[in-house]
Design a protein around this nucleic acid. Sequence first.
DNA 1: AAACTGGTTTGATATATGTCAAAAAGCGTG
DNA 2: CACGCTTTTTGACATATATCAAACCAGTTT
Lengths: 263, 263
Amino acid sequence: MTKPAMSVALSPDADDATGETSGQITRRKPHASAACSSCNLAELCLPADLTTEEMHQLDELSTLKRSFSRSDYLYRSGDKFRSLFAIHSGSFKTQILHEDGREQVTGFQMAGEIIGLDAISTDIHACEAVALENSVVCELPFNKLEALSRDIPKLQRHLHKIMSREIVRDQGIMLLLGSMRAEERLAAFLLNHSQRFAARGLSATQFQLRMSRQEIGSYLGLKLETVSRAFSHFQNERLINVKVRTIEIINLAGLQACLNNSR
Amino acid sequence: MTKPAMSVALSPDADDATGETSGQITRRKPHASAACSSCNLAELCLPADLTTEEMHQLDELSTLKRSFSRSDYLYRSGDKFRSLFAIHSGSFKTQILHEDGREQVTGFQMAGEIIGLDAISTDIHACEAVALENSVVCELPFNKLEALSRDIPKLQRHLHKIMSREIVRDQGIMLLLGSMRAEERLAAFLLNHSQRFAARGLSATQFQLRMSRQEIGSYLGLKLETVSRAFSHFQNERLINVKVRTIEIINLAGLQACLNNSR
DNA sequence: AAACTGGTTTGATATATGTCAAAAAGCGTG
DNA sequence: CACGCTTTTTGACATATATCAAACCAGTTT
């Protein structure tokens, strides 16, 4: 149970010499299949009650898939903004860089989530997105998306909801960073991942983290040693079993209780 | 203080006995004046190059103004979402409440800024907005705004930019909370306010803060004493003069330098 | 003016988390 | 399988910030 379902890389002949940027490109035959099913756009396609015509239009939107290997950049800070990306499979981290070298992981994104919303504001990507494992994304050209959402109010509303959800998520992290102690933060992190795995039909209690202690620490505003100690402590408390990146939640309620002990 | 969540929705002539909810309502004669100038929608109206017809449509959108006194709620966590609000004058704070009583200030908003974006995602306000002083807001019914933005692509794009900007702002705060020490946080806070005052034609170096040390602390993830000490320290360093809520920045470059000293 | 009130400043002390360092465990590669 | 490289764990110690407490101050009420 190491790597969860990981569809194959699709394109034979794209150069991947540096293993660095770009990712491999695949152009999907439009209409080959329904947009949502083929692209797994859990979030984007939620407006469930579209007409078939509308479905087709949506289908045309996302004809490009690109695949990435661990530590490839999906985009970098400063890149020109053209598209949002829907993660088809795999996972990414996003991070912002401060001049003085500091960096802050702002999120971990998994299949079905939309990435790149921060760039709309300036037409320049404000953060960078890095693959945590082999991953495939659907590219969604933003001006096409905007045009389409003018024609399909349900899509428009959906897009707004996605953006708003990101705002709510970020504010949740502000709460976490601003008022939780180390172990509460880690508990919140684990529970959040548990839910998200569950929402994808995977186990809520057993999963593989794809990021390092360092990256978790950056996300949670902690040093990696503190993260490691918190993991060990949860293990001693018999709340979880942790073997490096393999997590098993033994006492879910216990973890949740952790969160409600205010300082 | 703080009555915990829940209260009436906002009806026109609601009683204001407690000085608590609602705010007073003014219905503007549509067309009485140009939307942007009358409403001061710095952010919303930026799409500068609209036709007069489009301007008129925008004008119709925001016919409702409401005024609030210090510590009045603009909306509360759990309220049904109907409208965004453009702050016409004055200022607000937004905060989220955690079950266990913890609360986290997520932002301070001033004239020209849009408030309420977080509620789009669920149709329920996720946080609450409280006036920091006497303030006036323009109510922007969201479904009208959506409808209009289908007709006016520039408005659509603008709305997207506003939402995206909020995401970028929140991520900046994540960086602050996740990787800055107390004095850096306060420096960032002061510089941010300085810029925002300047952008409104006010002095960048002398201003009045409208929030308490406690509120600043909540926003910055610090205790009020720590905030107070940081102020005192800046004063001793001759970076600022501070007399309670009256701030004068003496050495702006010095404050900025503060920010670039990584840990 | 005196008394109150809520916010602010400042000091002494406690504590959570950071820092530094070394050992242990994983993991890919020759 | 041994080797080297990276990540993780654990320990000892340092420090930034929180906590507790008291004094101070400004504005408001009596």
